[in-house]
């Protein structure tokens, strides 16, 4: 059997999508931290747009430009206060053509 071994490139997937980015006003923020919790660390894999990434210091950072506003990270990390989550301003963010 030939299961494709190519690494999933989420960037290629997001490239298909339309966004209206609200420059300078990210709708999700990660609170500064020393060590991320297990859930915050998991987001580096679980976020479907791969918005969360681990930096060289071992902390989790977010670039929300490709965010599809699914809310998964809010469910996992808002209660603990590790992230601050809001919808983008009206009209901004992802624009699904099909959905």
């Amino acid at each position: 059997m030939t299961i494709a071994v190519t690494k999933s490139r989420v960037e290629d997937k997001l490239y298909q999508n339309r966004y209206l980015v609200d420059s300078g006003r990210p709708h999700i923020k990660v609170r500064p931290h020393e060590r991320p919790s297990a859930n915050l660390l998991a987001l580096t894999h679980v976020c479907p747009a791969k918005c969360y990434e681990l930096n060289d210091e071992g902390q989790v950072e977010i670039t929300a430009d490709g965010c599809m506003e699914c809310g998964t990270c809010r469910i996992l990390c808002e209660t603990s206060g590790e992230i601050e989550w809001n919808y983008p301003r009206g009209g901004f963010g992802v624009l699904f053509k099909f959905g």
Partner: peptide, 23 residues
């Protein structure tokens, strides 16, 4: 389930690509 994704530290797009390549 989101709880399963978090516990298994899986990526949804990896699952989707595996489904796409299923024979």
């Amino acid at each position: 389930l989101v709880s399963d994704f978090a516990a298994m530290v899986e990526s949804p797009y990896v699952l989707l690509d595996a489904l796409k390549s299923h024979p």
